[in-house]
Protein backbone atom coordinates (compact mmCIF):
# COMPACT_ATOMS: atom_id res chain seq x y z
CA UNK A 1 0.00 0.00 0.00
CA UNK A 2 2.79 2.39 0.88
CA UNK A 3 5.02 1.62 -2.11
CA UNK A 4 2.79 0.51 -4.96
CA UNK A 5 5.62 0.55 -7.52
CA UNK A 6 7.56 -2.19 -5.72
CA UNK A 7 5.12 -4.78 -4.40
CA UNK A 8 7.76 -7.52 -4.37
CA UNK A 9 10.24 -5.56 -2.28
CA UNK A 10 10.92 -7.45 0.93
CA UNK A 11 13.99 -5.65 2.28
CA UNK A 12 13.94 -1.95 3.19
CA UNK A 13 16.69 -1.24 0.66
CA UNK A 14 14.72 -2.82 -2.18
CA UNK A 15 11.67 -0.89 -1.09
CA UNK A 16 13.68 2.29 -1.21
CA UNK A 17 14.92 1.45 -4.68
CA UNK A 18 11.39 0.86 -5.83
CA UNK A 19 10.40 4.19 -4.38
CA UNK A 20 13.31 5.83 -6.18
CA UNK A 21 12.16 4.33 -9.48
CA UNK A 22 8.65 5.60 -8.76
CA UNK A 23 10.10 9.01 -8.02
CA UNK A 24 11.90 9.03 -11.37
CA UNK A 25 8.78 8.12 -13.31
CA UNK A 26 6.77 10.71 -11.47
CA UNK A 27 9.45 13.31 -12.07
CA UNK A 28 9.58 12.49 -15.78
CA UNK A 29 5.80 12.78 -16.05
CA UNK A 30 5.76 16.13 -14.32
CA UNK A 31 8.64 17.44 -16.42
CA UNK A 32 6.76 16.41 -19.53
CA UNK A 33 3.63 18.14 -18.35
CA UNK A 34 5.58 21.28 -17.48
CA UNK A 35 7.30 21.29 -20.87
CA UNK A 36 4.02 20.79 -22.72
CA UNK A 37 2.89 24.34 -21.89
CA UNK A 38 5.78 26.28 -23.52
CA UNK A 39 5.80 23.86 -26.44
CA UNK A 40 2.08 24.41 -26.96
CA UNK A 41 2.62 28.15 -26.77
CA UNK A 42 5.39 27.89 -29.34
CA UNK A 43 3.13 25.94 -31.71
CA UNK A 44 0.39 28.51 -31.25
CA UNK A 45 2.67 31.40 -32.20
CA UNK A 46 4.12 29.40 -35.10
CA UNK A 47 0.66 28.59 -36.42
CA UNK A 48 -0.47 32.21 -36.12
CA UNK A 49 2.63 33.51 -37.90
CA UNK A 50 2.21 30.85 -40.58
CA UNK A 51 -1.45 31.74 -41.08
CA UNK A 52 -0.82 35.46 -41.31
CA UNK A 53 2.26 35.25 -43.52
CA UNK A 54 0.50 36.74 -46.52
CA UNK A 55 -0.63 39.78 -44.54
CA UNK A 56 2.72 40.16 -42.79
CA UNK A 57 4.56 40.18 -46.12
CA UNK A 58 2.22 42.71 -47.65
CA UNK A 59 1.76 45.11 -44.71
CA UNK A 60 4.51 44.50 -42.16
CA UNK A 61 4.15 46.77 -39.16
CA UNK A 62 2.04 49.19 -41.22
CA UNK A 63 -0.82 46.82 -40.38
CA UNK A 64 -0.80 48.17 -36.84
CA UNK A 65 -1.08 51.82 -37.84
CA UNK A 66 -3.56 51.92 -40.74
CA UNK A 67 -7.32 52.09 -40.36
CA UNK A 68 -8.81 50.82 -43.61
CA UNK A 69 -10.55 47.45 -43.34
CA UNK A 70 -12.14 46.62 -46.67
CA UNK A 71 -12.54 42.94 -47.64
CA UNK A 72 -13.96 43.96 -51.02
CA UNK A 73 -10.75 45.65 -52.15
CA UNK A 74 -8.60 43.41 -49.93
CA UNK A 75 -7.24 46.36 -47.92
CA UNK A 76 -6.60 45.69 -44.22
CA UNK A 77 -5.37 47.73 -41.26
CA UNK A 78 -5.90 46.83 -37.60
CA UNK A 79 -5.57 50.13 -35.78
CA UNK A 80 -9.31 50.55 -35.01
CA UNK A 81 -9.39 47.02 -33.60
CA UNK A 82 -6.36 47.59 -31.36
CA UNK A 83 -7.78 50.93 -30.27
CA UNK A 84 -11.19 49.40 -29.55
CA UNK A 85 -9.71 46.52 -27.55
CA UNK A 86 -7.57 48.78 -25.40
CA UNK A 87 -10.23 51.45 -24.91
CA UNK A 88 -13.06 49.06 -23.99
CA UNK A 89 -10.81 47.27 -21.50
CA UNK A 90 -9.63 50.59 -20.07
CA UNK A 91 -13.24 51.74 -19.60
CA UNK A 92 -14.04 48.41 -17.95
CA UNK A 93 -11.21 48.81 -15.44
CA UNK A 94 -12.10 52.45 -14.84
CA UNK A 95 -15.53 51.36 -13.67
CA UNK A 96 -14.75 47.95 -12.16
CA UNK A 97 -11.63 48.71 -10.09
CA UNK A 98 -13.13 51.27 -7.67
CA UNK A 99 -16.30 49.21 -7.36
CA UNK A 100 -14.50 45.93 -6.70
CA UNK A 101 -12.07 47.54 -4.29
CA UNK A 102 -14.96 49.14 -2.42
CA UNK A 103 -16.89 45.87 -2.15
CA UNK A 104 -13.77 43.96 -1.08
CA UNK A 105 -12.90 46.52 1.60
CA UNK A 106 -16.49 46.56 2.80
CA UNK A 107 -16.60 42.78 3.06
CA UNK A 108 -13.26 42.35 4.85
CA UNK A 109 -13.31 45.42 7.08
CA UNK A 110 -16.82 46.61 7.77
CA UNK A 111 -19.58 44.13 6.99
CA UNK A 112 -21.10 42.25 9.92
CA UNK A 113 -19.81 38.69 9.75
CA UNK A 114 -23.30 37.36 9.02
CA UNK A 115 -23.51 39.08 5.62
CA UNK A 116 -19.87 38.78 4.51
CA UNK A 117 -20.22 35.37 2.87
CA UNK A 118 -23.56 36.05 1.16
CA UNK A 119 -22.28 39.27 -0.44
CA UNK A 120 -19.04 37.68 -1.61
CA UNK A 121 -20.98 34.69 -2.94
CA UNK A 122 -23.38 36.82 -4.95
CA UNK A 123 -20.62 38.91 -6.48
CA UNK A 124 -18.65 35.80 -7.36
CA UNK A 125 -21.77 34.29 -8.91
CA UNK A 126 -21.51 37.00 -11.59
CA UNK A 127 -18.48 35.12 -12.90
CA UNK A 128 -20.59 32.03 -13.53
CA UNK A 129 -22.98 33.72 -16.01
CA UNK A 130 -22.17 32.78 -19.61
CA UNK A 131 -20.85 35.56 -21.79
CA UNK A 132 -23.68 35.28 -24.32
CA UNK A 133 -26.23 35.79 -21.54
CA UNK A 134 -24.47 39.03 -20.65
CA UNK A 135 -24.70 39.98 -24.31
CA UNK A 136 -28.45 39.34 -24.49
CA UNK A 137 -29.06 41.11 -21.22
CA UNK A 138 -26.97 43.97 -22.53
CA UNK A 139 -29.07 44.30 -25.67
CA UNK A 140 -32.49 43.95 -24.07
CA UNK A 141 -31.98 45.57 -20.66
CA UNK A 142 -28.73 47.48 -20.30
CA UNK A 143 -28.73 49.40 -23.58
CA UNK A 144 -32.36 50.63 -23.37
CA UNK A 145 -31.65 51.67 -19.78
CA UNK A 146 -28.40 53.44 -20.66
CA UNK A 147 -29.98 55.25 -23.60
CA UNK A 148 -32.76 56.77 -21.55
CA UNK A 149 -30.74 57.58 -18.44
CA UNK A 150 -26.95 57.51 -18.31
CA UNK A 151 -26.23 58.42 -21.94
CA UNK A 152 -28.72 61.29 -22.02
CA UNK A 153 -27.35 62.56 -18.72
CA UNK A 154 -23.74 62.39 -19.94
CA UNK A 155 -24.65 64.07 -23.20
CA UNK A 156 -26.61 66.81 -21.48
CA UNK A 157 -24.07 67.50 -18.76
CA UNK A 158 -20.71 66.73 -20.36
CA UNK A 159 -21.73 67.19 -23.99
CA UNK A 160 -19.01 69.81 -24.45
CA UNK A 161 -16.39 67.07 -24.14
CA UNK A 162 -15.55 65.20 -27.37
CA UNK A 163 -16.15 61.88 -25.55
CA UNK A 164 -19.86 62.50 -25.16
CA UNK A 165 -20.88 63.95 -28.52
CA UNK A 166 -22.67 62.66 -31.57
CA UNK A 167 -25.77 60.53 -31.98
CA UNK A 168 -26.65 57.94 -29.36
CA UNK A 169 -27.37 54.59 -31.01
CA UNK A 170 -27.09 52.45 -27.94
CA UNK A 171 -24.58 49.94 -29.22
CA UNK A 172 -21.33 51.72 -28.46
CA UNK A 173 -17.87 51.67 -26.97
CA UNK A 174 -19.29 52.84 -23.63
CA UNK A 175 -21.94 50.09 -23.52
CA UNK A 176 -19.24 47.50 -24.19
CA UNK A 177 -17.03 49.00 -21.49
CA UNK A 178 -19.86 48.86 -18.98
CA UNK A 179 -20.76 45.23 -19.70
CA UNK A 180 -17.06 44.32 -19.49
CA UNK A 181 -16.86 46.10 -16.13
CA UNK A 182 -19.69 43.98 -14.79
CA UNK A 183 -18.02 40.85 -16.15
CA UNK A 184 -14.53 41.45 -14.69
CA UNK A 185 -15.74 42.76 -11.34
CA UNK A 186 -16.16 39.35 -9.68
CA UNK A 187 -12.56 38.40 -10.55
CA UNK A 188 -11.04 41.62 -9.24
CA UNK A 189 -13.28 41.64 -6.18
CA UNK A 190 -12.66 38.08 -5.11
CA UNK A 191 -8.87 38.19 -5.49
CA UNK A 192 -8.76 41.58 -3.74
CA UNK A 193 -10.91 40.22 -0.92
CA UNK A 194 -8.52 37.31 -0.47
CA UNK A 195 -5.38 39.46 -0.35
CA UNK A 196 -7.04 41.86 2.08
CA UNK A 197 -8.13 38.99 4.31
CA UNK A 198 -4.54 37.77 4.77
CA UNK A 199 -3.19 41.17 5.86
CA UNK A 200 -2.05 40.56 9.45
CA UNK A 201 -4.34 41.93 12.16
CA UNK A 202 -1.29 43.60 13.70
CA UNK A 203 -1.20 46.11 10.82
CA UNK A 204 -4.80 47.16 11.43
CA UNK A 205 -4.19 47.32 15.18
CA UNK A 206 -1.05 49.40 14.72
CA UNK A 207 -3.01 51.95 12.71
CA UNK A 208 -5.93 52.05 15.13
CA UNK A 209 -3.66 52.33 18.15
CA UNK A 210 -2.15 55.40 16.43
CA UNK A 211 -5.54 57.08 16.28
CA UNK A 212 -6.85 55.87 12.92
CA UNK A 213 -10.56 55.30 12.49
CA UNK A 214 -11.62 51.97 11.00
CA UNK A 215 -11.87 53.55 7.58
CA UNK A 216 -8.46 55.22 7.90
CA UNK A 217 -6.92 51.96 9.11
CA UNK A 218 -8.37 50.15 6.09
CA UNK A 219 -7.26 52.79 3.62
CA UNK A 220 -3.84 53.75 5.02
CA UNK A 221 -2.64 50.43 6.47
CA UNK A 222 -4.54 47.41 5.15
CA UNK A 223 -4.87 48.40 1.47
CA UNK A 224 -1.24 49.62 1.07
CA UNK A 225 -0.02 46.40 2.68
CA UNK A 226 -1.93 44.38 0.09
CA UNK A 227 -1.27 46.60 -2.89
CA UNK A 228 0.87 44.29 -4.98
CA UNK A 229 -1.83 41.65 -4.60
CA UNK A 230 -4.46 44.19 -5.62
CA UNK A 231 -2.46 45.12 -8.71
CA UNK A 232 -2.39 41.40 -9.52
CA UNK A 233 -6.16 41.25 -9.18
CA UNK A 234 -6.58 44.18 -11.57
CA UNK A 235 -4.29 42.53 -14.11
CA UNK A 236 -6.35 39.35 -13.90
CA UNK A 237 -9.42 41.43 -14.68
CA UNK A 238 -7.65 43.21 -17.52
CA UNK A 239 -6.66 39.89 -19.05
CA UNK A 240 -10.30 38.83 -19.02
CA UNK A 241 -11.45 42.12 -20.53
CA UNK A 242 -8.92 42.08 -23.39
CA UNK A 243 -9.98 38.67 -24.61
CA UNK A 244 -13.72 38.83 -23.99
CA UNK A 245 -15.57 38.28 -27.26
CA UNK A 246 -19.25 37.41 -27.22
CA UNK A 247 -20.77 40.04 -24.95
CA UNK A 248 -18.56 42.71 -26.47
CA UNK A 249 -19.46 41.95 -30.06
CA UNK A 250 -23.15 42.08 -29.16
CA UNK A 251 -22.85 45.54 -27.61
CA UNK A 252 -20.01 47.41 -29.26
CA UNK A 253 -21.59 47.97 -32.67
CA UNK A 254 -18.86 46.23 -34.71
CA UNK A 255 -17.61 49.08 -36.85
CA UNK A 256 -13.99 49.43 -38.00
CA UNK A 257 -13.68 53.02 -36.94
CA UNK A 258 -11.85 55.16 -34.44
CA UNK A 259 -14.18 57.70 -32.89
CA UNK A 260 -13.49 60.12 -30.07
CA UNK A 261 -17.05 59.77 -28.82
CA UNK A 262 -17.80 56.89 -26.48
CA UNK A 263 -21.35 56.84 -27.87
CA UNK A 264 -20.01 55.80 -31.27
CA UNK A 265 -19.73 52.13 -32.19
CA UNK A 266 -16.31 50.47 -32.36
CA UNK A 267 -14.78 47.04 -32.70
CA UNK A 268 -12.32 44.85 -30.85
CA UNK A 269 -9.79 42.34 -32.09
CA UNK A 270 -11.49 39.36 -30.48
CA UNK A 271 -14.92 40.40 -31.79
CA UNK A 272 -13.65 40.93 -35.34
CA UNK A 273 -11.98 37.53 -35.46
CA UNK A 274 -15.09 35.77 -34.19
CA UNK A 275 -17.42 37.61 -36.57
CA UNK A 276 -15.42 37.58 -39.78
CA UNK A 277 -13.50 34.33 -39.73
CA UNK A 278 -16.33 32.15 -41.04
CA UNK A 279 -17.18 34.64 -43.77
CA UNK A 280 -13.67 35.44 -44.94
CA UNK A 281 -13.58 34.57 -48.63
CA UNK A 282 -10.12 35.68 -49.74
CA UNK A 283 -6.76 34.40 -48.56
CA UNK A 284 -5.70 37.91 -47.70
CA UNK A 285 -8.77 38.42 -45.49
CA UNK A 286 -8.01 35.18 -43.65
CA UNK A 287 -4.37 36.12 -43.28
CA UNK A 288 -5.34 39.56 -41.98
CA UNK A 289 -7.58 37.99 -39.33
CA UNK A 290 -4.76 35.64 -38.36
CA UNK A 291 -2.48 38.65 -38.10
CA UNK A 292 -5.06 40.30 -35.82
CA UNK A 293 -5.01 37.18 -33.62
CA UNK A 294 -1.21 37.41 -33.46
CA UNK A 295 -1.45 41.08 -32.46
CA UNK A 296 -4.04 40.27 -29.81
CA UNK A 297 -1.71 37.62 -28.46
CA UNK A 298 1.16 40.13 -28.48
CA UNK A 299 -0.91 42.83 -26.75
CA UNK A 300 -1.91 40.38 -24.00
CA UNK A 301 1.70 39.31 -23.49
CA UNK A 302 2.90 42.93 -23.36
CA UNK A 303 0.15 43.95 -20.92
CA UNK A 304 0.95 41.03 -18.65
CA UNK A 305 4.68 41.74 -18.82
CA UNK A 306 4.06 45.38 -17.89
CA UNK A 307 1.88 44.18 -15.04
CA UNK A 308 4.68 41.92 -13.77
CA UNK A 309 7.07 44.86 -13.84
CA UNK A 310 4.50 46.96 -12.00
CA UNK A 311 4.00 44.33 -9.29
CA UNK A 312 7.75 43.91 -8.99
CA UNK A 313 8.28 47.65 -8.60
CA UNK A 314 5.43 48.04 -6.13
CA UNK A 315 6.67 45.19 -3.96
CA UNK A 316 10.38 45.96 -4.32
CA UNK A 317 11.95 46.12 -0.88
CA UNK A 318 8.60 45.48 0.73
CA UNK A 319 8.80 41.74 1.23
CA UNK A 320 5.79 41.83 3.49
CA UNK A 321 3.68 43.53 0.83
CA UNK A 322 4.41 40.86 -1.73
CA UNK A 323 3.18 38.14 0.57
CA UNK A 324 -0.41 38.83 -0.37
CA UNK A 325 0.01 37.68 -3.94
Amino acid sequence: MTVPTAPSASTPAAALQGAAAGDRIFRALLTLAALAIPVLLGFLVYELVQGSELAIQRYGFRFLTTSTWDPVTDEFGALPLIFGTLLSSFLALLIAVPLSLGVAIFITEFAPSAIRRPIAFIVELLAAIPSVVYGLWGIFVLIPFLRTTVFTFLKGTFGFLPFFQGPVYGQSMLAAGIILAIMVMPYIMSVTREVLAVVPASQREAAMALGATRWEAAWTAVVPYARSGIVGAVILGLGRALGETMAVTMLIGNRHEIAASLFAPGYTMAAAIANEFSEASTDMHLAALSYVALVLFGVTVIVNALARVLIWRVSKGRQSGGAGL
Binding site: P200, S202, M208, A209, L210, G321
Partner: peptide, 15 residues
Protein backbone atom coordinates in the same frame (compact mmCIF):
# COMPACT_ATOMS: atom_id res chain seq x y z
CA UNK B 1 -5.79 56.46 21.43
CA UNK B 2 -3.86 59.62 20.63
CA UNK B 3 -3.31 60.05 24.36
CA UNK B 4 -2.63 56.37 24.99
CA UNK B 5 0.00 54.95 22.65
CA UNK B 6 0.75 51.27 22.25
CA UNK B 7 3.70 49.06 21.38
CA UNK B 8 2.95 45.48 20.40
CA UNK B 9 4.48 42.11 21.12
CA UNK B 10 5.91 41.74 17.64
CA UNK B 11 7.25 44.81 15.91
CA UNK B 12 4.65 45.76 13.32
CA UNK B 13 6.03 48.59 11.20
CA UNK B 14 4.00 49.50 8.12
CA UNK B 15 5.58 48.47 4.81
Amino acid sequence: RLGVGMVFQRANPFP
